[in-house]
Amino acid sequence: MPLADLQRALGALVAARAAGGPGAGGVPVDLDLSVEERAWLRSLGGSPGFQVTCDIQRWWRETKLRWTARLTLAVLGREEQGAVIAEYLAAVPCASLFFATEASAFLDYVARARGERPHLAAIARFERALLRAREAEIEPVALDVCLPDAIHAHPAASMVEFAAPPERLLGALLARQPLPAVESGRFPILVAPGLARLWRPATLDEARVFASRRLPEQSGTRPPSP
């Protein structure tokens, strides 16, 4: 009955209830728990205090998303936000208390899971790219390869394609207006550290060059401190 197993079991119960709502989860059977510990853990399921604990976990995860993924949630709209957040919380376990980490996981999830919704995946990728670029401005990424004399995409830069002119799409989002219709043209957006507001519209040529000039995945190392 080591403490580690008790904590494993408690962590699993909290995660299951926080993700799935009432009635979800059970005491894992393959842990070294005493009879008393198992009885205690089973008793938690019906306790209001356990529910409050799980509510706190859920609230905190949701708060992180509402603070950090505002554009994507705006696309979803009030009616759908709760359902998509609940879906995400059930599908993706908590990994961190940090806002950007939780938001990045959520935005990746939305882009994958709701790709059919007009503009939604693009905005999720845009917001994800902004997080990445913002982090790179804070902590510059060292280039650990020897660069030949050519243009290369910054490892924290992204090219995102919108399905409508960005000023109309983002303007509608910020003004809480109906989103513009999907257009047949391509509207690439460059997101990168060092740009004013971290993004600007790109040309189709830039998008083509960007796609052909991406560097191999960087290690995430940073230059030595001055």
């Binding site: 580690a4 904590q7 494993r8 976990q57």
Partner: peptide, 21 residues
Amino acid sequence: FLLTTSPDGRPVHTGVPLPLP
């Protein structure tokens, strides 16, 4: 505590500080 592992050994973040016995 905030950190534990899943029953199969993967790192788990509880998402909320949990008490010790």
